[in-house]
Amino acid sequence: MKVLLPSALHSYTGQAWVEADGAMVADVLDDLDQRYPGIRFRMIDEQGRIRRHIRLFFDGEIVKELSHTLRADGELLIVQALSGG
């Protein structure tokens, strides 16, 4: 599926949109980390929690659990939370 990444993570990917596979959000993040080593830990902490200023959306709905299931033809949007002035 297509995954949109925030600008803060383009140093890993070189671009905003990338491809990644997985049946759940956790799988997609693992696949991203295989392709772009280190990227997952910048978004997800060591206890498997989405970091405070990262938001995930799938098909326009916010995703709060890494066990959230995904469709292969959908788009996962990973964005930086609006957290500053």
């Binding site: 925030p6 803060a8 993570l9 080593p37 280190g38 830990f41 910048r42 978004m43 997800i44 902490d45 060591e46 206890q47 970091r51 200023h53 990262i54 930086q80 939370a81 957290s83 500053g84």
Partner: peptide
């Protein structure tokens, strides 16, 4: 950064080039 989790960057040429640590400091499970 303000949005992203912590990491360690490493240079072996006094800052000409940098690479990220493969496994930054992270706690274990509870």
């Amino acid at each position: 950064t303000g949005h992203l989790g912590p990491t360690i960057f490493r240079s072996v040429d006094l800052g000409k080039t940098w690479n990220e640590a493969k496994k930054p400091p992270a706690f274990g499970p509870a």
